[in-house]
């Protein structure tokens, strides 16, 4: 007998793979969205700092803007730099 797969409709869930559950600022789940957003995923992405701490983009931007001129990571208090910059 041969099995011929005509179509395999699979189901998957996505994750940010942030090695943590919730954003350190808003305490909402990473895979959810920040309090200001309605839609998770592309509309509310994550941002990693050089210290490898991740936050919702909107959360960390707010934080960084309020912390100028020298923003620090809310988790480890090191100077905040976006990863990959």
């Amino acid at each position: 007998m041969k099995v011929k797969i005509l179509q395999w409709h699979a189901v998957a869930s996505w994750t940010w793979d942030a090695h943590d559950d919730a954003c350190g600022i808003c305490r909402m789940a990473f895979d959810g969205c920040c309090p200001d957003c309605k839609m998770p995923g592309d509309d509310c992405p994550l941002m990693w700092g050089a210290c490898n701490h991740a936050f919702h983009l909107h959360c960390i931007l707010k934080w960084v803007n309020s912390q100028s001129p020298r923003p620090q990571c809310p988790m480890c208090r090191r100077d905040w730099k976006f990863r990959g910059d």
Partner: peptide
């Protein structure tokens, strides 16, 4: 496409259309 997002398969969910050839 969607870096850094990853997929986690829920392998038991979904539908499969297949043909058995005897």
């Amino acid at each position: 496409i969607k870096a850094p997002r990853k997929l986690q398969w829920r392998k038991n969910l979904g539908t499969v259309k297949l043909e058995l050839q005897f």
